[in-house]
Write a protein that binds this DNA or RNA. Structure first.
Lengths: 238, 238
DNA sequence: ACCGTATCTCTACGGCGTAGAACGAGTAGA
DNA sequence: TCTACTCGTTCTACGCCGTAGAGATACGGT
């Protein structure tokens, strides 16, 4: 018998690795949603016994945290950008792009931090926080203010994608907005406003809405929290 | 034999009802989290066969939607308030109070709308939307602007509670902030800012943070979207 | 006394996460 | 060359899960 063993009816698999495990998990989630991912199914997809996965993650919840890391790791923040609000805008767009590219991961994105304590999360999920702090303190904000801004900013982003990715369409083959969204079920008496908004709801533009929100938020931050620190020479917008 | 049948070794149960089913489900979630709720466990808690629950909900996901309705139904909006931004402030505080009272329900609150199309959700979960639209159009906003404001507002609220309810503490019996949050695990080189923020992170004040955020958001909305409609005589803050 | 309906129970199926022990191949030391 | 050890993997098994399908029971109206 050959030693390499590269053949086989189901094509023997090359080798297992953390990367292959996690990216396959992400693929399954992208296709079938979080509920559609099981250790057994993932094992099947990798041509391995489910138990072999426990070499790469302590348990299923840890694996989910790692999937979050895999996605959030793609979010790059340029901490050397001297225009902090422009940089945040760029990050916001990148974050939205990620969410739109992986809508089924969004539940994990917003939900895992409620279960896993900060200090135990995969490092990749904490880098955006560290980088934001770096960016903002370099821009002259105090550490405390930097944290406030980070929180408003990512809170806003999470709220935005949760809004944008809401399930609206009930009946895709219908063309009339009201029927498409299934709003005809709502009692006319109780929900007149909502029903009359059907056409508006039906053509939500996420990218535009994000920009509008950013305008408000960044303007608000700029007026409430002028950079106080010494680092560079400020333009003194105030 | 008696007809009432009120006795029994495990004290026969009075009667099942939608309300009892849902409020027991909520209790279990409050105690054990969403993952801790199973149809079988819920049946056990009610002294009934699990299958009897399917008389009150089509399946488990519908039951979860109904739990969201049970919680969100407690959010009252006074659509007759002539000061829309004050009313939103009140609603914001009530929403936060609900989230703090039922932290384990928050994952459902933010996550179920991603799975259930608008038109198929329990009516109680849509009432805050309808009421907000009513409040804002009465205040003179166009329907479209009212929707925009609703979205920024609830997006902000969701972002806020997700921030506030993040799991931070790793080691509760520790007194030093860094160790309490488990941040000593983070490589000093890569996470200097985050580590130095440990004491600040450790005493997060959710209520105060909410007010700060509301200040920014409401001011922003007020400046970006002055009421345009005709209804009442406006105070013309502008 | 009867029936229809609403409520509830029984049984069973296929799937889940993962504990515990065993296995096989590869590597390093003797 | 033999041996000991490690690492990735697999096998088997346990106790959960959601829920389909069919049947039992209780009850309100006639």
């Amino acid at each position: 018998m050959v030693k390499g063993a590269q053949a086989g009816p189901a094509a023997a698999v090359p080798r297992l690795s953390r990367e292959r495990v996690l990216s396959t998990a992400l693929e399954i989630i992208d296709k079938n949603g979080v509920e559609g991912l099981s250790m057994r199914g993932l094992g099947r997809a990798l041509g391995r016994d489910p138990m072999s996965l426990y070499h790469y993650a302590a348990n299923k919840t840890a694996l989910l945290d790692d999937v979050v890391e895999l996605v959030l790791g793609q979010l790059v923040i340029d901490t050397t950008d001297t225009d902090w609000s422009a940089q945040l805008r760029t990050v916001a767009r990148a974050f939205r792009d990620l969410a739109v590219a992986h809508p089924h991961v969004v539940p994990l994105l917003v939900t895992r931090p409620l279960a896993t304590p900060l200090g135990l999360r995969p490092l990749g999920t904490l880098r955006p926080l560290e980088a934001s702090l770096e960016l903002l303190t370099r821009a002259g904000f105090s550490e405390v203010d930097a944290l406030h801004i980070y929180r408003s900013f990512f809170g806003f982003l999470q709220g935005h994608v949760l809004n944008e990715l809401q399930e609206l369409v009930d009946n895709p083959e219908e063309t009339d907005a009201l029927l498409r969204l299934g709003l005809q079920r709502l009692p006319l008496r109780e929900f007149p406003r909502l029903r009359s908004l059907a056409p508006v709801l039906a053509d939500y533009d996420g990218a535009a809405e994000l920009e509008r929100g950013l305008d408000i938020l960044l303007a608000g931050l700029q007026s409430q929290l002028p950079p106080t620190g010494p680092p560079g020479i400020r333009k003194a917008t105030k």
